[in-house]
Write a protein that binds this DNA or RNA. Structure first.
Lengths: 190, 190
DNA sequence: AACCTATCTGACCGATCGGTCAGGCACTGT
DNA sequence: ACAGTGCCTGACCGATCGGTCAGATAGGTT
């Protein structure tokens, strides 16, 4: 409820995403917030709890999207709707997604990250089940990891300060091209 | 020259890529190698030196590719040749590239990583100079980050144990689709 | 024999890590 | 005035970090 907790959550989220979880000390988070390390541990009982608070909303939303995806049919329009939903998700929670994608494998044994890893695996399994092709699986991995990377590396690349709706439209177009079932593939042999 | 040095380099490369540089202790590297921490520091004067030894070959190769790209013209066939060259590079040095891409921003102040970050920026600037479109820049970022992610997360995704040449062909096809200049863009207003 | 070098090791160091604890301070209700 | 509560703090703890150092061992050279 207090502003400090929310401030700390936001600061931690940014630092965990940019510098990495294990490379970010509680002391550093406290300094940025203008508090002492003890105060951070007053609001969050441990560093793990702070990570959990930072990424939990994104995981909940992700789980919600995935359940809807798995329960519904996979008609072409359903797939397109999912894609827009997923783009909005990744835009809203870009830092959280960046944490899952880049630090998920290294943060096993952290329960909240294990949940995220399971979700990624479920999503991958879903796509793999519908496409046995190696290239399609690779397209999925590139779309997922690439979007997470690109949206959190705007500065280092040349694409800072673009209007959100333009970014959104472009991302939908790119991911559609990457993930849509290839109806007219480059190899039309038969 | 001794096998220990090369073993340590390989172990460190794997651990730095999967667990992260700051999350990997010298003790852990020594344990995997069956040596003591002191022995690791005998072969490499510091943890940073070990990181540098692990990724330097990839950086050298990357720099070589980039110089060739910047000096040559950018005709369509030149671009296609670069893409194949780049795919082979990223396949050979996938773990090193994964380190650059995912831990580059957090490992500033490490000279060898700064070199890598500069190379990524130069590559991004090169693509940005030839394409002012936001979507093209995003495509570049997704291709770069996505390939690095996908090639190092084969296990978590569903695409383990594919023949290398199949992976190579698919990656060339995907990146070609992502990076080839859109000759018939959706916005043809003028 | 003596010597040198390469490789490896345990003991040790200061710094920093995440986390605990007792208490200070301001405010509120009684 | 008093007690309770929310927020914050410095002092402190054990563990682990990267790194140093003085040797131990082995093999090769003379």
């Amino acid at each position: 409820m207090s502003t400090s907790s929310e401030d700390l959550r936001a600061i931690a989220l940014g630092e965990f995403a940019t510098a990495g979880y294990s490379a970010t000390s509680l002391h550093r988070i406290a300094d940025i917030a203008g508090l002492s390390k003890s105060s951070v541990l007053y609001h969050f009982s441990s560093k793990e709890a702070l990570l959990e608070a930072a990424v939990a909303p994104a995981i909940d939303r992700m789980e919600q999207i995935l359940e809807g995806l798995e329960s519904n049919s996979l008609a072409a329009e359903g797939r397109a709707a999912f894609l827009v939903e997923f783009v909005d998700f990744i835009l809203q929670y870009r830092r959280e997604v960046h944490i899952f994608i880049n630090q998920g494998p290294s943060l096993v044994a952290v329960p909240v990250i294990d949940r995220a890893n399971d979700l990624v695996r479920r999503l991958a399994a879903f796509f793999a089940a519908n496409t046995a092709s190696l290239e399609e699986k690779m397209r999925f991995g590139i779309a997922l990891g690439g979007a997470a990377y690109m949206l959190c590396t705007e500065d280092s690349l040349a694409l800072q300060s673009a209007p959100l709706d333009e970014t959104r439209a472009a991302l939908v177009a790119i991911l559609t091209g990457l993930l849509s079932p290839v109806e007219a593939p480059q190899k039309t042999e038969d």
